[in-house]
Design a protein around this nucleic acid. Sequence first.
DNA 1: TTGTGTATATCCACTGTTCGGTATACCATA
DNA 2: TATGGTATACCGAACAGTGGATATACACAA
Lengths: 221, 221
Amino acid sequence: MASKNLPTRDRIVNAAAKLFQGEGVRDVSVDMVAAEAGLTKRTLYYHFRSKDDVIAAYLQARDQPNLAMFKRWFYETDGGLAEKVEGIFRNLALAARHPKWKGCGFLRTSVELVKTPGHPAVLAARTHKKRVEDWLCTELAKAGLASSSQAAARQIILLLDGSFSTVLLHRDPSYMEAAGDAARRLIHGYLPPADTLDDFSVSAPATPSRPQNSEPGRPLL
Amino acid sequence: MASKNLPTRDRIVNAAAKLFQGEGVRDVSVDMVAAEAGLTKRTLYYHFRSKDDVIAAYLQARDQPNLAMFKRWFYETDGGLAEKVEGIFRNLALAARHPKWKGCGFLRTSVELVKTPGHPAVLAARTHKKRVEDWLCTELAKAGLASSSQAAARQIILLLDGSFSTVLLHRDPSYMEAAGDAARRLIHGYLPPADTLDDFSVSAPATPSRPQNSEPGRPLL
DNA sequence: TTGTGTATATCCACTGTTCGGTATACCATA
DNA sequence: TATGGTATACCGAACAGTGGATATACACAA
């Protein structure tokens, strides 16, 4: 465990992330988080005002790493724009095959807190999803989808969130490859038809690189 | 309220559906369901063995009506295949604009029960989603997407579930129209290119028919 | 060096409440 | 009178949050 000599607050957030991600924010009690962090509930309540604040901190802490992982999957995939986007879904499918994979923490948490629409954790989830969408939008624009980059980014996000939900329900990660295929098709449809020679849309078949996620530890994402 | 002279069991399921759909299965207690049905908890436990059974019955009862609604939205939309599918999303966006709309009960419930993957309610949710996908698949096949009907149906389901999740998070039903646009584009991409004259792909712009969902009562879906 | 004050950080034990589920008794009607 | 259905009152467990005491560390003055 790397979170040994961290500040107490960070250890609490790490413990919360591990438990919340694995079992959901409703099924994990404050006592369990405290125990996982190796301290007492009273100490936890010294660093956080409420369980809701711990939940919000959990999601805020996952925002940047998650976005960075999407970027890595995108940049590390060979091929053109469409293949790079498809690479995200391909790597996601790999991650989803980990036996402990439990879907998207942002989406799941916001569903668990549907009674409290203004909950800070829900706002954190919205911010994260928007950030991913905005990043995608700029990448699409850079690659030539000038006027339609916003629409395309939205549709890819829809496929992404659909993947999370559908795969979590059916426990069948092949849906993610179907989503990647759909994203690729959509992008090809948006790209300038055939007059401009698209030098990248026919490059390497974009095989996922790292053989990650061979079972142990915690799942990515 | 139409559930006045129904058998007790059905009144319980109706009450459960109303409350579970509005506030989630975890935030609604058995006492609340019993009170909503106009009887005591002990009576409820005479008709159901456990709360889990009530939850499962709630989803099982929604399977057929939900599927029927999708079919109606599809058949009642003018235009070709792509436009008919897009009509589903358009009507869904209308439904989602109802202030009390709370997303897809199947997806939400299965997220709330993520700790119990074999839960009968989760199985009911899977069955329902599969049923929608299968129906879509046959419609796609009937309309000419012979070999790719399965893949296309999957991708439409992904857009559908993505819509539910994304719109529930952002509270912005315009994502559903974006999903409908994506579905239309995908289908056009699958349809035989241009050699066969597609007499329907350019028909009426498929405006949603009924002016439904003008605020009161419970939201559809 | 010693003594005192203060802020940070931790813990044990407890409260009040909610919830799923039950024990037991009552009642209506066939 | 026996069966199906309903009601009151209750149980045990789990939970979020708190009261109050304690340990540590550092600042500054005697």
